[in-house]
């Protein structure tokens, strides 16, 4: 099957939706893409356009179908081969929106070997590439932590919170200084990401700081910061650090004495009861 025949196996919308789809033909086409290696994958990617610049429904469908089908046990060779082919297109001169689509497929089938190619876009604000890059790396997992650590000090604007949050998602204990520093930021959402990151790494020694910061916040900031302190207490209790968890609950009870905080005191009481 050549590229055109492969793509013709996938449907065009009929009455706006993909109602007439031939499963067997699509599965055969996917097999052809896998066996066709880098050349066929790149040829299909070449047909993907920026949104609004023409019809690329079939190429997008074909690439996604392959990304999905190379998953699962026993397909490691096919998966790595296809993911490598996808990643190779990220260094080409292509529209960034197309690269965004490729990165999103790597979120499904990419591995540590493709992390560097994906991480190149962690600080790229165009077409939300930083977001797609971070999410693909988070999906790949802890093998990508170094890329986040390298990118964070360079980050400005929208990518900054995304990368910081990625370090929290991956529970990177070495990023504690980043989280602590973020907690002092002028931007509320960065401060919250810092507190959340410390919670994610179960940083018992920072509990006091987190609690103090939660009390400085108002409105939404206070709601979320307090929630992260509760979550830290639960994580510590689960890790066998009951003493540290108890201290958090007691501090929350004492520091939230206003009438409208009754539900927080009750939440702390429930947490304390769980410790016994």
């Amino acid at each position: 099957m050549n590229t055109k025949e492969i793509l013709n196996a996938f449907p065009q919308p009929e009455g706006k939706i993909l109602r007439n789809i031939d499963k067997e033909a699509c599965e055969q086409a996917v097999e052809q893409i896998i066996s066709g290696g880098r050349k066929i994958t790149r040829a299909i990617i070449d047909l993907i356009l920026e949104p609004g610049n023409g019809d690329d429904i079939r190429p997008r469908h074909a690439i996604h179908a392959t990304a999905i089908r190379v998953g699962g046990t026993g397909k490691e060779i096919e998966r790595n081969s296809f993911a490598s082919a996808l990643a190779s297109t990220l260094t080409d001169d292509r529209p960034k929106a197309v690269k965004g689509f490729v990165i999103r497929q790597l979120q499904i089938c990419g591995g540590a070997k493709q992390a560097e190619a994906i991480a190149y876009f962690l600080n790229d604000s165009e077409e939300h590439l930083y977001e797609y890059s971070a999410q693909a790396l988070e999906a790949i997992g802890v093998a990508t932590i170094d890329h986040f650590r390298t990118a964070y000090p360079l980050a400005k604007g929208a990518p900054r919170i995304t990368i910081l949050q990625g370090l929290g998602v991956l529970q990177d204990k070495k990023s504690r200084p980043f989280f602590l520093s973020a907690m002092q930021d002028t931007d509320l959402e960065i401060r919250l990401a810092g507190i959340w990151g410390l919670m994610r790494i179960s940083s018992a020694k920072d509990a006091e700081l987190m609690l103090s910061q939660s009390l400085k916040e108002k409105g939404w900031g206070r709601i979320k910061a307090t929630a992260y302190c509760f979550e830290l207490a639960e994580k510590l209790a689960k890790n066998g650090q009951s003493k540290e968890a108890k201290a958090i609950y007691i501090k929350i009870k004492k520091s939230h004495s206003e009438k409208q905080d009754a539900y927080l005191r009750e939440t702390a009481d429930r947490g304390l009861a769980q410790l016994k």
Binding site: G72, Q165, G166
Partner: peptide, 18 residues
């Protein structure tokens, strides 16, 4: 035994949402 499927159970969220 399906790491790729597991990526769909808890897909990363866009910041600042988590």
């Amino acid at each position: 035994n399906d790491n790729e499927a597991n990526r769909f159970l808890n897909p990363p969220m866009s910041a600042p949402w988590r």
